[in-house]
Design a binder for these strands. Structure first.
Length: 263
DNA sequence: GGAGATGTTTCAAG
DNA sequence: GCTTGAAACATCTC
């Protein structure tokens, strides 16, 4: 489920635990989410420490516990929630961080999510993440350069590259291309300079609004967005009423309007 | 029962 | 060496 705004939203779920000490960490060690981190390290590393900071960057989250940090990626079906102090872990609750008054829970049925532990507050992997799409580091130049390098990719696949568009996922990529009126299967290399700049601009607009309405309180993005119609069979383009098409492009199911986006 | 799912990594081919 | 596309991962829902 989670893209940029959903990740921001879920990260705040653990906010009630800020400033509180960890009393116990329960890990379902065999779960696949531990393929990138050792359960024993997480258990020992977090125990007794306070949750001091919550950060997100694209689809990545980082929970700082004093001098240690827990990286968390929600994958496809991950979610964070807060439960009671003695919460009995459900079938898909692979990590439960207990505090005096609550449990911080990471639930993930498909287990495409992942964890990272580091005994420092700001680990190297975090420092190396690409600039946020709403930061100054996400520059037109950077996107233009990158478009040259990935000239052979269909636009849909181009927008899903996390090294350039961190946080953009399937629905956001469709939304951005729909706003630009570009056919998602069009090759990136066929775009003119000003068309790439349109992608840069719309990426920021879609991200800003999504963060505001979904990221803050899981609200609804505007009715005029493709978002509301893209999964429904026979869904219509909110701009011109044309029946949307759905096909796999760039390796993911893609919805687009054959009239205003071509093909 | 079968298809498909808001994601990433890995591997092989070009 | 770089780019690209497909497969794999594991479970649930429609």
């Amino acid at each position: 489920m989670p893209e940029l705004a959903e990740v921001a939203f879920y990260s705040k779920k653990w906010a009630p635990g800020l400033g509180e000490r960890v009393t116990e960490v329960v890990c379902r060690e065999r779960a696949r989410i531990y393929r990138t981190a050792e359960a024993a390290q997480i258990r020992l590393g977090l125990r007794g420490r306070q949750l001091t900071e919550i950060r997100t960057r694209g689809k990545q989250m980082m929970f700082v516990f004093g001098d240690a940090s827990l990286g968390l990626h929600l994958g496809m079906t991950g979610e964070l929630l807060v439960a009671g102090r003695a919460h009995e872990p459900g079938k898909h609750d692979h990590l439960v961080i207990r505090q005096a008054k609550r449990s911080l829970v990471f639930r993930d049925p498909r287990m495409f999510g992942a964890l990272k532990f580091a005994p420092v507050a700001e680990p190297d992997w975090w420092k190396e993440l690409p600039p946020d799409v709403l930061s100054r580091g996400f520059s037109k130049d950077m996107v233009l350069r990158y478009a040259c390098r990935r000239a052979g990719l269909p636009l849909k696949a181009f927008l899903l590259q996390q090294e350039t568009f961190p946080g953009i996922g399937n629905w956001m990529a469709d939304e951005i291309l729909w706003r630009c009126r570009f056919y998602p299967g069009r090759k990136t290399g066929s775009l003119k300079r000003n068309e790439i700049i349109m992608i840069w601009e719309e990426t920021r607009k879609v991200s800003r609004t999504a963060l505001r309405v979904i990221g803050e309180r899981w609200g609804d993005v505007p009715k005029s967005w493709l978002f509301h119609y893209r999964w429904r069979d026979g869904g219509k383009c909110p701009r011109d009423g044309t029946t949307l098409r759905r096909e796999e492009i760039g390796g993911r199911t893609t919805a687009w309007c054959p009239k205003c986006q071509g093909k």
